[in-house]
Nucleic acid binder design. Structure first.
Lengths: 218, 218
DNA sequence: GAATAAATTGAACGTTCGTTTTATTATTTC
DNA sequence: GAAATAATAAAACGAACGTTCAATTTATTC
């Protein structure tokens, strides 16, 4: 046999990506063979090489698109005006929302960096550095105008990112907490962590969830 | 050739563990071959099987001893008296101290769970669950007696653990921050995160580092 | 409907994998 | 110093790896 009835390059490529993200997230890049991936797609191993020149190139594509998606999501969610607290709220809410809806590719992007070639690793780390730099800027802005009380902006940025990325390690949808509740909790913790000044309004403590800090997917 | 001059089982086993932790942390369990490990030790691959029946058993041994070491370290560091704030301080300081001095085995324990058999995985997760349960207890105690303001103890525990374990991702000794400075920063962030009530003493804001919350190694 | 392009198969390549077996040498015991 | 034991080397096992290549079939173009 050769070309199969109804076969379509675009559909096959999408199926490969989907199966690859799922398998690599579950078993790890090194543990997943091209034959195993092909079997999941319902195709022979040789067919994969029509779409990705090497196994590593496939991994790189998955990670690059994850990072580009994250950055695009943040650029879309970033508030045009408002103070540092608003920006930080939007950052945290977008980060959590993006990652909980992409558990598999997040796992891949966080765990498989060491399987990339030096060149591809550099590219991914550059994307990541730019994203993290934005968070540091928000923290410094807030520290300067008195919104936050922060010891070290770089250290605080890493602490926040690790805390909010870690959601996907334990959080499972369909459990006792919804995404919205989890996001609200993390927003509160983040705001306290940076020493954001709390204001009391009408006797009720004002927590840090504003309209534009709500979770927005996509 | 066969037995080499000066060869000693205990020394060889220790050398295997050390090389394995280092290699697996750097390249990942699946990517490290028994031959590569043997070469690092300066021995033939077959010799490894005198000390560990399988490759996976070697991994399991490394992870089990890491977790047992962490739990032992915490039991030693745990304050006998004092409130929830003291306990939490000790927990964070011990956790950070333990992990920054064991970067490699921490990486292995955090990244290679999926390479364990079901049985071995269950064992490791049981150790981990017990450790995390202790943190949840501290948080609940503090919430009950008014020391902390916490939304959800389980969620907060995971957030704290991910935040303080994440230190090893970015922290490198010999850089601008010392272990003590980093620990102090994380203690402050943790205490704010749980809404610990701050007290003002002599006009100076009291941060949350007490005598028994100092970093202690070993 | 013939010519061309796209999609996939099946077999094969050389390499490396974890592991086992057997033989050999160094060390310890008595 | 012989016997027993511990530690390793060397070679080999079958299986699996990523990848390539030629052949073949379906879909599209004109």
């Amino acid at each position: 046999m050769a070309r199969t009835i109804g076969s379509d390059g675009e559909k096959t490529e999408a199926a490969i990506r989907e199966a690859a993200v799922s398998l690599i997230a579950r078993y790890g890049y090194e543990a997943v063979s091209m034959r195993q991936l092909a079997a999941e797609v319902g195709v022979q191993a040789a067919a994969l090489y029509r779409y990705f020149p090497t196994k590593e190139d496939l991994l790189f594509t998955l990670m690059r698109e994850h990072m580009e998606g994250l950055i695009a999501s943040w650029e879309n969610a970033r508030p045009d005006d408002g103070g540092a607290a608003d920006e930080l709220s939007a950052f945290v809410a977008n980060h959590i929302g993006f990652h909980v809806t992409r558990r598999h590719s997040t796992h891949v992007s966080n765990m498989e960096l060491r399987s990339l070639s030096h060149e591809n690793l550099t590219y991914i780390l550059k994307l990541r550095a730019g994203y993290e730099k934005d968070l540091r800027r928000i923290l410094r802005d807030g520290a300067e105008d008195g919104s936050f009380r922060i010891g070290d902006a770089a250290l605080t940025a890493m602490a926040i990112i690790q805390m909010i990325t870690g959601v996907i390690v334990w959080f499972r949808p369909d459990e006792r907490l919804s995404v919205e509740e989890v996001t609200r909790n993390y927003l509160t913790m983040t705001m306290r962590l940076v020493g954001a000044s709390e204001t009391v309004e009408g006797g009720r403590r004002k927590e840090y969830v504003h309209a534009n800090a709500e979770f927005r997917a996509g």
